[in-house]
Amino acid sequence: MTTLLITHPTSLLHLTPAGHPERPDRLRAVERALEDERFASLIRLEAPLGTFEQTAFCHSPAHLQAVLAAAPKEGLAHLDADTTMSPGTLEAALRGVGGAVLAVDEVMSGRARSAFVATRPPGHHAERERAMGFCFFNHAAIAARHARQIHGAERVAIVDWDVHHGNGTQDIFWDDASVLYASTHEMPLYPGTGAPSERGIHGNIVNVALAPGDGSDEFRDAFEIGILPRLAAFQPELVIVSAGFDAHWRDPLADINLREADFAWATRKLMEIAERHAGNRIVSVLEGGYDLDGLAKSAAAHVAALMGA
């Protein structure tokens, strides 16, 4: 069974202001790391252009219209203090949608066991009605709804280990018992959501907060005690990973001290869940990670684990 790498050159055309942490060099760093010979067996596909119908799985028509209206023909348009659009942003964001959907199609059909979607901008802060936190469309959430509505999956789990809480994913699935959203993240930190008391209407939201300065032991405990038992009880038919790598010790935007080995360990734990309950089906989408070296090495460790290496 194969592992897919899905990306697209237009991901580099989403431009941000000078000094902005979410920059094209992030994706270049990941791509260089995955050019190593140990990744030669990856099946590499280009992300198709996502459709407006696919964004509507998770976002309101008003949100789509707002993003379309903000897209500039030249220069940069600021949606908020952190989130900007350039002329290439809309296509880049829609390639992220299309890549996540393609990954689900390939994995749910059995043509691949796992997939890593390396596109930018990221997605997990995008709420049903709002773009924010560098994010425009919520790729992981759209992937989950696509698995439900197109492939008939009854239960989908999204596990988010980005150091920032995925408020957008939580917002979208707050009242949807068919999707379990489990997140480990630093608190207090942007965007200010993700308290353990935030559980969703059906108890399908699992938030395990880490404190500034926490490292490998606390992260692994969060998984072992807070997240993995809930996943096992939920018995998902597909596991989706919001794979942010900004909990790495080198990252400038947070204060969690993970190493590459922690991301590989967490990947293998989720693969065990997928093997037991989901026919080995696991889809991962790139979220944050803003130190280029830490991002590249962590993504490589994650993909190597997906490949069983």
Rank of each mutant, 00 (worst) to 15 (best):
L4N: 00
T3N: 06
D221H: 14
P252L: 06
G244S: 09
G88A: 05
V107E: 12
V283N: 13
E260P: 13
A243N: 13
Q65T: 04
S298G: 13
S11E: 02
H78Y: 11
P21A: 03
A70L: 03
L13Q: 14
R23S: 12
A209I: 05
G203F: 06
V179A: 05
H164G: 08
L94E: 07
I273V: 15
R155T: 01
P196V: 01
R120G: 00
P121T: 00
H63V: 10
G279W: 10
A182E: 02
A309N: 15
S284W: 07
F263H: 12
L5T: 03
N204C: 03
P122H: 00
S109D: 13
T3S: 09
A141Y: 07
A233F: 09
E127T: 06
D162M: 13
A153C: 06
P121Q: 00
V206Y: 00
P61H: 07
E35T: 09
G289K: 03
T10H: 11
D217S: 14
I227C: 11
L228K: 14
L286E: 01
H248Y: 10
A115D: 04
D255Y: 14
T10A: 15
D221T: 10
H20W: 01
A103P: 01
D293I: 13
R268S: 13
G192W: 06
P72W: 01
A266T: 06
P61K: 09
T84A: 06
D246Y: 03
S298D: 12
F234S: 10
R199C: 10
P87R: 05
G288K: 08
E22F: 06
E287P: 05
P236Q: 04
D251T: 05
L42W: 10
T83A: 03
G168H: 04
L64Q: 15
H302F: 10
P21G: 10
V104K: 10
A56F: 08
S11Q: 07
F116K: 11
I282E: 10
